[in-house]
């Protein structure tokens, strides 16, 4: 297999990975939350994506306030 053959395979695998990531990301956002779990809404602003340290930490404080 020539070097360019390998490069084409590698690039196509990476693109396939990118597409699966985006499709699964969109699908995950679109599937409705299962019936019984609407209430466990983590405070979206704090727990969205990345700022999760406060998400757990302050979430407990809010509960027992």
């Amino acid at each position: 297999m020539s070097q360019t053959g390998y490069i084409i395979i590698a690039v196509s695998i990476l693109l396939a990975l990118l597409v699966t990531f985006i499709v699964s990301f969109v699908l995950y956002r679109r599937t409705p939350v299962p019936k019984g779990c609407e209430d466990i809404k983590a405070s979206e602003e704090k727990c969205s994506g990345c700022s999760h340290v406060e998400c757990h930490f302050y979430q407990d404080k809010e509960e027992n306030k």
């Binding site: 699966t20 995950y28 599937t31 779990c37």
Partner: peptide, 20 residues
């Protein structure tokens, strides 16, 4: 990232208890 989304999809669809 795609693993996390796929696992999430799987749990959301098939096991609400685990999703809870």
């Amino acid at each position: 990232a795609s693993l996390v989304q796929l696992v999430g999809l799987f749990i959301k669809k098939y096991s609400p208890g685990l999703y809870k």
